[in-house]
Amino acid sequence: MRYGLVVLAAGFAGLLTFSLLALAIGTDYWYIIDVNKDNHTGPDDLSSHSGLWRIIEGANRSSVIPSFTANMSSLSETEKQLLGLHKVVVIILPLSLVLLVFGWIFGLVSSLACSPSLLVGSASYFLFCSLFTLTGISIYIKYSNQAMDEFQRVVSPESLANVKVSFGWSFASAWLSYSLEVATGLLLMLAARIIQMKGHYDLGVSVAML
């Protein structure tokens, strides 16, 4: 396998993983609540979708999720716990995005230097970044499940029969970004291995010529 193709694939994957995570963080389709309109007799559309920063209700109503501005003294313990989980998510995922920028630069320098040790370091860095992304996604899943449990506790089973909940394409974009972070790390590991094997081959040829 050619070294140039591997590092090119790693660079493309690294750029794509950044783009997908930025898209996920900036869009509002992490969690979707779809209310069956056929069984809803009220004038308002009760369906909603939410991202990391705001909730879009109906056609044009939106509200910011008050993770850092809410008056904690007026909240129940469950609400405090939910906001706490949400705070962790909105800190970890943007941090992972920033780390990816440095990882891409480090990977580019390592690839141009053709240094196995630098390539391994870059690969380890990307795999480390992927842990941040995975942690953020996992905590968001826990946050969503707890929010849904609380919602089910206060809403009648008859009303819930008309409600369908699902994770949206923003959530899927974050998952894909995580997968590509891992792939980038593995490709950089492969590039380091190719350089090492080439070095051993060149050394063997030189010894044979002697």
Rank of each mutant, 00 (worst) to 15 (best):
L160S: 02
F126R: 01
E77K: 10
L97W: 06
Y178C: 05
V6Q: 02
L46F: 14
M189H: 02
K87C: 06
G185N: 04
S19H: 04
M197Q: 13
I141H: 07
L127R: 13
H86G: 09
L100D: 08
T69S: 15
S74D: 13
G58P: 11
H49T: 05
T27A: 09
K164N: 14
Y178Q: 04
V64N: 06
I137N: 01
E181D: 11
V101D: 01
C114H: 11
S62I: 00
G107Y: 03
S156C: 04
T27E: 14
L23F: 15
L108V: 14
A70M: 09
V101C: 05
I139A: 04
A174M: 03
M72V: 13
S138A: 13
N36G: 01
I56A: 07
S74I: 09
Y143M: 08
F128W: 10
I195H: 02
S111T: 04
F132D: 07
L5E: 14
P43Y: 11
Y178E: 07
A208K: 15
L52Q: 03
D44Q: 12
L187D: 05
A172P: 00
F167Y: 15
I25L: 15
Y3Q: 04
F126S: 04
V155W: 08
L188K: 02
V120W: 06
R153H: 12
F132H: 08
M209I: 14
P157E: 05
Y140L: 07
G84V: 05
L16C: 07
W53M: 08
S48I: 00
P94T: 09
S48P: 00
E150D: 14
L127P: 00
L180W: 03
G185R: 04
D38R: 14
L190T: 13
V207G: 00
F106L: 12
A22L: 12
L15K: 01
L16R: 06
L112Y: 05
I137K: 01
S67P: 00
N71R: 14
A70T: 11
A10S: 12
L15V: 08
S62H: 11
S115H: 01
D28I: 07
A174N: 01
R61A: 10
L52E: 01
S122Q: 03
L188Y: 11
I56G: 00
C129A: 09
P66R: 10
K80A: 03
N162W: 08
C129T: 11
V90W: 06
V109R: 10
S122P: 02
G11W: 06
G11R: 08
A24N: 04
N39T: 13
R193H: 11
